[in-house]
Amino acid sequence: MQSYRKTEITVGVFVFLGIMAMAWMAIKLGQVGGLGSSGYHVSATFEDAGGLRAGADVMLAGVSIGRVASVQLKGQEEALLQLEIQQGVKLTTDAIAAVRTKGIIGERYVRISQGADDETIEDHGEIEETESAINIEDLVSKYIFSSSE
């Protein structure tokens, strides 16, 4: 019986460690169940979301301040993004949201530049000024055009 007691304790430690590993991954990596997602939502409309996906970073001055919660089509021609911004980060009403790329093949992200307004955007507010993704093909063709003229 003594040895069974020992087995029981070892199994207890094993199960505890396993659950701790699961919990750590869930909280730290997955940000499951609201533990990591305390923030407020703002929306932004883009002409071209440039392949942005849910989960992409939202950055202000090069610092990650949230992530893209969803990407949807708005009407029949524009992209509507829901952004989840960390609590405590205040965006001015005239802030500019732009879809940008990290590195040359890197991921798309949303870059936000603060404006000069005193008022800030509330939860479920909207960033009105947006810049669409820069399309490298467009740039290249524009360059070719202009040089041939």
Binding site: M25, A26, K28, L29, G30, Q31, V32, G55, D57, S64, R67
Partner: peptide, 11 residues
Amino acid sequence: EMIAKVTPMDL
């Protein structure tokens, strides 16, 4: 990057 790219769905 690790934290940013791993979604609950992956877990």
